[in-house]
Simulated assay, not measured.
Amino acid sequence: MKFAITSKGDSKSNTLMHKMRTYLGDFDLQYDEDQPDLVISVGGDGTLLYAFHRYKSRLSKTAFIGVHTGHLGFYADWVPDEIEKLVIAIAKTPYQIVEYPLLEVIIRHNDGGKEARYLALNECTVKAIEGSLVMDVEIRGQNFETFRGDGLCISTPSGSTAYNKALGGAILHPSIRAIQVAEMASINNRVFRTIGSPLVLPEHHTCLLKPVNDVDFQITIDHLTLLHKDVKSIQCRVSKETIRFARFRPFPFWNRVRDSFVGS
Rank of each mutant, 00 (worst) to 15 (best):
H68G: 15
T69K: 05
T69P: 01
T69Y: 02
G70K: 11
H71P: 00
H71T: 14
L72T: 12
L72V: 14
G73C: 04
G73L: 03
F74T: 01
Y75V: 14
Y75G: 10
Y75W: 11
D77N: 11
D77I: 13
D77G: 05
W78R: 06
W78L: 05
W78F: 07
V79E: 14
V79P: 03
P80K: 08
P80I: 03
D81S: 15
I83F: 02
I83S: 12
E84K: 12
E84S: 15
E84Q: 13
L86S: 05
V87M: 12
V87L: 12
I88C: 11
I90F: 00
I90A: 01
A91Y: 00
A91T: 03
K92R: 15
T93P: 05
P94R: 01
Y95M: 06
Q96V: 12
Q96H: 12
Q96N: 11
I97D: 04
I97H: 05
L102T: 03
L103A: 09
E104C: 02
E104W: 00
V105A: 13
V105W: 00
I107Q: 02
I107L: 01
H109C: 00
N110V: 10
D111C: 03
D111W: 02
D111T: 04
G112I: 00
G113Q: 01
G113E: 03
A116V: 02
A116K: 08
R117L: 06
L119Q: 04
L119A: 01
L119T: 03
L121F: 07
N122W: 07
N122I: 06
E123A: 08
C124E: 09
C124K: 09
T125D: 04
T125P: 06
K127I: 07
A128W: 03
A128V: 02
I129D: 13
E130W: 09
E130G: 10
L133R: 07
M135T: 06
M135L: 12
V137I: 11
V137F: 09
E138C: 13
E138P: 04
E138V: 06
E138R: 13
I139Q: 05
I139L: 12
G141F: 04
G141E: 07
Q142K: 15
Q142Y: 13
N143D: 14
E145A: 02
T146E: 09
F147Q: 03
R148I: 08
D150L: 08
D150V: 07
D150S: 11
G151C: 06
L152G: 08
C153S: 08
C153N: 11
C153R: 03
I154H: 04
I154P: 03
I154F: 10
S155D: 01
S155C: 11
S155Q: 02
T156V: 04
P157M: 10
P157G: 13
P157F: 05
S158E: 08
S158M: 09
G159W: 00
G159Q: 04
S160Y: 00
T161Q: 07
T161N: 08
A162Q: 05
Y163F: 11
K165V: 04
K165M: 13
L167G: 14
L167W: 10
G168Q: 07
G168E: 07
G169T: 05
G169N: 10
I171G: 05
L172E: 07
L172V: 09
H173K: 01
P174W: 03
P174D: 10
S175Q: 12
S175T: 14
S175A: 15
I176C: 11
A178D: 09
A178I: 07
I179A: 05
Q180C: 10
E183Y: 14
M184Q: 13
A185F: 10
I187Q: 06
I187L: 14
